[in-house]
Amino acid sequence: MVPAEEPLVQPKAKDALHHGPILVRLEGIVKRFGSQVVLDGVDLEISAGQVVSIIGQSGGGKTTLLRCMNLLETPDAGTLQIEDRVICAGGRVSAAEDLVKLRQKVGMVFQQFHLFPHLTAVENITLPLTRVAGMSVADAIDQALRLLGEVGMRSKALALPATMSGGEQQRVAIARALALRPLVLLFDEPTSALDPESTADVNSVMRTLARSGVTMVVATHELAFAEDASDRVVFVDCGRILESGPPDLMLHHPHEGRTKEFVASFSGRGSAGHRGGAS
């Protein structure tokens, strides 16, 4: 398991954060790939300190929704607002300067980790610290080692990604995404490519972050994580948000038929609180 070390983000009282300011606001987001409508008028607000889990069938639009939040995909219509700045409206992105700054505010952890294979674990983290934040190399190394310590990977600081397990790579990827202290951290099915033991390790790191008050949006099939680590669960189906609410309600007493079907499809594998090998 991941050893507990001094956290960079100090734990905060979650109740105080639930009513924090809105950090991300999506209004009427539409995204098409050719003739296929992948997102069809999505409205979503993420407040400071919230952990929002996005659940739904594969191909339903979860990943595209996350990618629209940091503009790795440009929405065809709708408005994306980060804090009080409109970053994208009506399919047009603001000046390039805003795009670079936006991505510093909205970090992302990918399903397949996407560490830079030519760099060691510590260099994967010092790269954004020195080349984006303008930190000195010595300070960047200090910060990177602390972050690696937080995810239990300090001993692998000089290891190349190719020599790490999937779970180890994902923990380094989380540390890298945290390096610039983003306002919001997006997770795109972070444990889908992992074995149960690695999944438990990564979930443990994510739970620690959630308790620390990091604002997180997690596209996931881990209903156990969605239930006990999120403040809100959003069900996405065919590019629309069908239903959202507190995890207890969403996973045990959903209103919409499709949500019931989706949650029920996991029932054969155990109760909502004990799925996917999550710890």
Binding site: L72, K101, R103, H114, F116, P117, L127, R131, A179
Partner: peptide, 28 residues
């Protein structure tokens, strides 16, 4: 392509994505 995206997602400017992420991997 995901290497370009991972670098962009960290807020690296396009020239730095090329210089520090794409070119070193391409040269290898």
């Amino acid at each position: 392509l995901h290497q370009h995206e991972a670098a962009q997602a960290l807020g690296l400017r396009p020239s730095r994505v090329t210089l520090y992420v794409v070119l070193p991997q391409a040269l290898r």
